[in-house]
Write a protein that binds this DNA or RNA. Sequence first.
DNA 1: GCTCTGACTTGCTGCGAAAGCT
DNA 2: AGCTTTCGCAGCAAGTCAGAGC
Length: 893
Amino acid sequence: MAVDTCIKPKYHDDGEDDDEPMIFKRSKTTSKQNQLNSEIKKVSSQRPDGPSKRPTPDTSSPNCQSSSLQKGKVVSIAKTPASKSLIANSKASTSLADKSKQLPRQNSGINNIEKKPLNKPPIKPNADSEDSDDDKPLSARLTVATATSQKSNASNVVKGRSSSIPSSSMSEKARVDIKKSSEDSEDEIPLSSKFQLKSGAGSSVKKSYDSDEEKPLASKIQQNGSIKKENEPLKSPKVLNKRPLCDINTSVHSSVKKPKLSDASVSAKVKQVSVKAEPKKEDDDDDVPIAQRMKKSATSDSKSQSMKKTITKVVSSSMKKTSKKSKKVMKNSKYSKSTKLQPSSGEGQKWTTLEHNGVIFPPPYKPHGVKMLYNGQPIDLTPEQEEVATMFAVMKDTEYATKEKFIENFMNDWRVILGRNHVIKKFELCDFTPIYEWHQNEKEKKKQMSTEEKKTLKEEKLKQEEKYMWAVVDGVKEKVGNFRVEPPGLFRGRGEHPKMGKLKKRIRPSDITINIGKGAPIPECPIPGERWKEVKHDNTVTWLAFWNDPINPKEFKYVFLAASSSLKGQSDKEKYEKARLLKDYIHDIRANYTKDFVNKDLMKRQIAVATYLIDKLALRAGNEKDDDEADTVGCCTLKVENVELVAPNKLQFDFLGKDSIRYFNTVEVELPVYKAIGQFQTGKKDGEDLFDKLDTSKLNAHLKELMPGLTAKVFRTYNASITLDEMLNKETKDGDVAEKVVVYQHANKEVAIICNHQRSVSKSHTAQMSRLSEKMDELKALLDGLKTDLARAKKGKPPLKDADGKPKRNLAPEALERKINQTNAKIEKMERDMKTKEDLKTVALGTSKINYLDPRISVAWCKRHEVPIEKIFNKSLLAKFAWAMDVDPSFRF
DNA sequence: GCTCTGACTTGCTGCGAAAGCT
DNA sequence: AGCTTTCGCAGCAAGTCAGAGC
C-alpha cells in the first residue's frame, strides 16, 4: 500500500521522511510506556527535579584523568588533573600511586554504615549530595591501576598465566604474587586498562559528599599504556579454555552453573518488591515527575516553541489513543501469546494501530558459472552448490577462512548440499581461487561504474524498497529499521564461536511471522506463490516481523522500527530516566553493598562484591551462556582464573567479554572486596565460577529491592552519563567551538574507555601514522632551516641554499620569525593530531554516544555553550534523539 | 525455584559516500 | 581532479532481562 501517499498529509509528516520534523511528533507521549517508568516514577517524583537544583559540582578531580601507565604495572592514580592527558604511553609513576593514597578514603566509614532499607526512595538531600562521590561512577572513584582490555586474543597472555600454579591450589597469597609480569606487554592492553580508577569505590558511603562521590567510579579510571590489538591473533585471556563442562569434577559450580543455592527469603522478598513496584496506579503519578521535567524544559526553551506546537498536537492525539489502549490489551491478548501479558500492569500495550508492508527479500541467487578447482581440476557445481562455494570463496582474504572451526563447519554444511557421492570431499583439495578472482573482478567493475550508473542503480533500489521503509504506528508514519531479510551466507560469529562457518540458509516467506494491526491490510507476500508463516496482531510487542535464526533456531531475528521512531525514543528516554533515578539511590546502594562485603551469608557477600564490580568497573551482568556460543563472561559468570589478587588490595581482571573483547584491567579495590574475592576463590579450580552462589536473576532481584526497576545494566548507563555530565561541566572553558568540541570528545572518550568500547585498528593506521611523521620531519627540517636563516639574516647574511641547491628568497628577520611561529604552530597541531589519532585508534566513541550517554546532557551543554548540536550528533543521532532536543539548557543528568 | 523463551538493547565491522588534501 | 581519509550507516551478532511454564 502506498504508505506515504496516504499518510503524509495526515500525519504532518510533511514530506520528508527525511528527518527531523517527524521525529518530534509524539515525543512527549508519556502514556503508554513504561512499565518501568511506572516502577520508577513514583520514586522519581520525589527527586528534586529541576536541573536548577543541581549545584555545579566543583568536583575537584574528575575521575577521568588518564594518566598513562605502563601496562602490567599496577599503579594507582590519584585524581590529578594533570593526569588527564590522554592515553599515552607514559610510564607509570610512583608518585601517582602515592597520590592516591592521599585521597580521602571513604572507606573508613564502612562499618558505620547503617543499613537502611534501600527500598525506600532514599530521598537525597538534593543539591549538595549530588556532588558527592556517590554520584560519580564508581569506577571513577577508584584507582584502577593498570587496565587493559583488548580484543580477544591474547593467547600469549593466557599461556603465560596458565602455566602458573592452578589458582585453586594456591593460597591467596601465592596467587597474589604470581600474576603481574607476564602478559603485559604493551600491546595487549585493553582499553579499560588505560585508565586508572581512583581508589575508594564503594566506600564512598561515609565520607560523602566532597568530591568524587557522584561520579561513576569508572570514570575515575585512568588510562594506561596503549591498547593494542591490531592484528594480533586472537589472544585468549586466561579464560580461553572453554567452559570445561566436564573436565572438572567440581563442575557443579563451575562452568555449568546449574542449580544454585538461593536464598529463599531474598527471592521472596524480591518478588514482592518488584510486583509492588509496578502497580499501575503509579503510572499516573509516576509520570508526573518525568513529564514535568520535560515540560519545564520545553517551556523554557524558547527556540523550541514553534516546534512544540506541532508536537503537542501530535502528542495529544497519540496520547489519547494510548490511553484507550491499555484496556484493549487484554482483549487482544488472545492473538498474541497469552503469555505475554504483564500480570501486574495490563499496560503492556505498545501500539493501537499498526500498518506496514512486510519485508523485502534478497534477490535469488544468480549462478556465475565460474568453476572452482578440486585437486587441480575444474568442477561442475549446481547453482545451489556454487552459491555456497561462492560464499566461502569471497571470504578468502578474511581471517575466518583460515580458522579451523570455520572451515569445518562450512564443509559440514556444504557437504550436505554436495550430496553423499560428490567428488569433493576434502577441503585441502579445494581451490576457490577462480571464484574469488571472479568476485574481485565484479567488485572492480562495480567500482568503475560511472557516477551516473551508480546513481541509477541506487534509485532503482530505492524504488523497490521504498514501500518497505515505512510503517504507520498509531497514525504516525515511522521509519522501519531492518526491513531487508538477511541474505544467506556463512555465519560469522565473533571470537571463537563454535558455529562460525555454518550455512545461514535462505529465509523464505514461509519462515516469517508478520505482526500487524488488526484490520490493517496484511502485507502482500513479495514472492509469488509463497505465503507468510503466520500473521499476528500482537500489540504488546514492537516487532513487525520475525523469523527463526537459521543458525540457532531457538532464537529469532526481528524486524523493528528504526531508532528514530517514537517507540524507540520513548524507551530510550525511560532508560535514561531510570539511570538518573539511580543517582538518588546510589549513595545508599553503595553503603549497602559496602556493608555486605563482610556479610556472613555467602550469597549476600557475593551479591555485594558483584554489585561493587558492576558499579565500579561498569562490568556487564554476565548471563549464563550455552556451550554452543562463544565462551565469554560477564560479572556473574566470571571464572576463578579471570581475577587475580595483587597484593595488597588490587585485582587484576582478564577475561573475554561481550563480542569476545578482552577486558584486562588491574584495579585497586576496597580491602574487604579484595579479601572477599580471595575467599570466593578458595577451594575452587580454574573454570569454576567465582560467584557460585549468584546469577543475574538473583543479582537483579536484589537490585530491585534497592531501587525499583534497577538492574545491572543501569549502572553502565548511569556511570557513563554521569561521567559525561561531570566532565563537560568541569572542563568546558571559554573558547571557540572547536575547543569545546575537543572537550566533548575527551569526555566521550573517557566514557568509551570506562565501558571498554574498542574498535579494531584500521588497516591503514600504521601507514597513516608514518606519513604523518614524515610530514612532521619535514616540518622540523623546515623549522631548522628557518632558524638558521634567521640567525644569518640577523647578521646580514643571505639564507643558505635549499635542499635542491637552489637559492632561497632573502627574507627579513621579522618575516622569518613569523614563519617560524607558523611552523611551530603547525608542528604543535600535528603533534596533537597524531597523539589523538594514536590514542583513539582502538577506542570506539560511537557506541557510548548511541547507547549510554543521555542525549539531554549533550543538548543542554550545547545550548549552554553555544555549540551547534550538529557538531556533536550526526544526522541519524539527531533523529534518534529528537525527544531530547528541547531540553532545558540547565539540565544536568 | 529454575529453565527456557521471547523481546529488546548493545556492539563491532565493513562498505560506500562525503569530506579533506594535494 | 584524483586520491586518501573520515564518517555514517546498514548489517547482524551478542548481550540483558522479564515472564511463563515446568
